[in-house]
């Protein structure tokens, strides 16, 4: 799980072009949206693309987005539970 969370931080920084953010700046449980990392609705779409490109996971229900993308940890938990072997 620790390795996956570290990978996710690096992938999010690259995919969302967060050039002034370092992986260690992102807390495992820090909110990704609003007052946390400050991501917006377009970033949410990019996170969906990231899940598909890097982990081959298609999100069946977009309504689950806020729960899944709450933090790095919730993303990692979702990937672990849904990634095909």
């Amino acid at each position: 799980m620790e390795k996956l969370m570290a990978d996710l931080k690096a992938q999010i920084i690259e995919q969302l072009n967060l050039q002034e953010v370092k992986p260690e700046d992102i807390g495992d449980d820090q909110p990704l949206f609003k007052d946390g990392l400050g991501l917006d609705s377009i970033d949410a779409l990019e996170l969906i693309v990231l899940m598909q490109q890097h982990y081959n996971i298609r999100m069946a229900n977009p309504d689950d987005g806020p729960k899944i993308f709450q933090s790095i940890r919730t993303m990692a938990e979702f990937i672990t539970a849904n990634q095909k072997a």
Binding site: L16, N17, I42, D43, L45, E46, V49, Q52, Q53
Partner: peptide, 9 residues
């Protein structure tokens, strides 16, 4: 491949 939302806007 996969259309980029960030570019589309």
């Amino acid at each position: 491949d996969i259309a980029s939302p960030a570019l589309f806007v």
